[in-house]
Every structure is written in structure tokens, then in C-alpha cells.
């Protein structure tokens, strides 16, 4: 082993990075080379001085933490609602869905404010303002459905009479072969929609 190699191994030894075999070789070299012994003594001493220097540490200013905390940007204040929404995405989606459905159903309900008359044969029917009149000498062949209006039946209806959000007046001369329904409330209206959807004629529970 030459001295240059030995110096390199000395550094490895000081870095705790030398295996036993190499350490033995280094020791053998140093035993017969006074220059390397001196070199190693110096390096070890420098090492010791550097580690010793570690203890001369100065304290930081007392207000350093406060100074640091005053320069960091303030976090954006998130509203409680936003935080909640972020934490419960599924419930939020469900709530939004229900809200949309409710508003659309409500708007459908509210939009139906004008008079609407439905029936297969409405030739003989007289409409005055929001009153639907079946005159005594007329015959309505089939069902008669009225939204948002009064029905006054003097003549003959060969089917059901359904009045939503309104009233039915039957004169003594009236002849309705089917049944008569009056639907006034939202719930009833929904029931009517559902039963209508399934084909069979409207029948209230």
C-alpha cells in the first residue's frame, strides 16, 4: 500500500466507511510509515476540533417565530359550507338531485294555472272564463278532464269527469255515466299523474 492510498483509507475510516480488512491493511501500513501516522493524527485532531466546535451555538432571536408567522400568507378562510361539501360529496350530490327534482315538479305544478280542457269530443262544450259548461242539450262522448276551472254539467257525459284544482257542479239534468273526481291538492295531483301514467283511469285512494 502506498501513502496516497493510505490517506484515502484514513478519510474513509474517519467517515466510518471502512471495512475490517482495509482497516487492518491501513494499520499495518501506518505501523511502518511515520509520515502517515502523523498525517492520521492531524486528521483525527481536525475531526475532533470540528465536532467540538458544534457546541458553540448561538441562540436565535426570541421573536424569530413571531416574525416568521407574520410574513407567511394568511390561509384563505374557507366557508363552513364549502368544507362540509368537500367532506361529503355523495350527500351533496344527492341533495342537489333532490333539489332539482323538487323545483322541476314545483314549476310544473305552478305552470298549470291556466284553464285546460281535455276530452275526445268537446264539440258541445261551452267555455266561459274559467268555467266549462256542458249544456243540457249536449252529449260529450268520452271522458272530460278539466284543469284549473269549474265544471258545470247540465247535459250528458258518456265517461268520467275529472276536475283538478276546481269544482264540479252537477245539475239535476246531468247524466254522467262514469265517475266524478275532484282533485285539489298537490298530493292528489301527483297521485293522479301516477295512475294516469299506468294507463288505468284516475281513481283516488
Amino acid at each position: 500500500m502506498d501513502c496516497k492510498q493510505a490517506v484515502s483509507l484514513m478519510h474513509d475510516l474517519l467517515d466510518d466507511d471502512l471495512d475490517r480488512e482495509c482497516a487492518k491493511e491501513l494499520k499495518a501500513h501506518m505501523l511502518e510509515c511515520p509520515a502517515c501516522r502523523e498525517r492520521f493524527r492531524q486528521l483525527e485532531e481536525a475531526d475532533r476540533l470540528l465536532y467540538g466546535f458544534n457546541h458553540r451555538l448561538q441562540p436565535t432571536s426570541d421573536d424569530l417565530t413571531d416574525r416568521i408567522m407574520s410574513v407567511i400568507p394568511k390561509p384563505r378562510q374557507q366557508s363552513a359550507l364549502l368544507v362540509w361539501v368537500k367532506r361529503h360529496p355523495a350527500i351533496t350530490v344527492a341533495a342537489v338531485f333532490v333539489l332539482v327534482m323538487m323545483t322541476s315538479a314545483l314549476s310544473m305544478w305552478n305552470a298549470d294555472k291556466q284553464l285546460m280542457v281535455k276530452g275526445a269530443h268537446l264539440d258541445g262544450v261551452v267555455i266561459e272564463n274559467n268555467k266549462v259548461i256542458v249544456p243540457s242539450d249536449k252529449v260529450v262522448a268520452g271522458d272530460l278532464t278539466i284543469h284549473n276551472g269549474m265544471a258545470e254539467v247540465y247535459g250528458q257525459v258518456q265517461g268520467d269527469v275529472t276536475v283538478i284544482d276546481g269544482k264540479v257542479f252537477q245539475a239535476s239534468t246531468a247524466n254522467i255515466s262514469g265517475s266524478v273526481h275532484q282533485i285539489d291538492e298537490a298530493l292528489g295531483w301527483i297521485w293522479y299523474q301516477i295512475t294516469n301514467l299506468f294507463g288505468s283511469g284516475p281513481s283516488l285512494p
Partner: peptide
């Protein structure tokens, strides 16, 4: 890093020669 530590240590050894 190893090379730098070795060189730095040699540098300091020379600087501190009078003391060690």
C-alpha cells in the same frame, strides 16, 4: 459527497496545522 468531505477535511487540516 465523500470526495468533498475528504478534500474539505484535508483543507481544514492544513488550515489548523499550527494547532494540531
Amino acid at each position: 459527497i465523500k470526495t468533498r468531505v475528504h478534500r474539505g477535511r484535508e483543507f481544514l487540516r492544513k488550515k489548523l496545522e499550527r494547532k494540531i
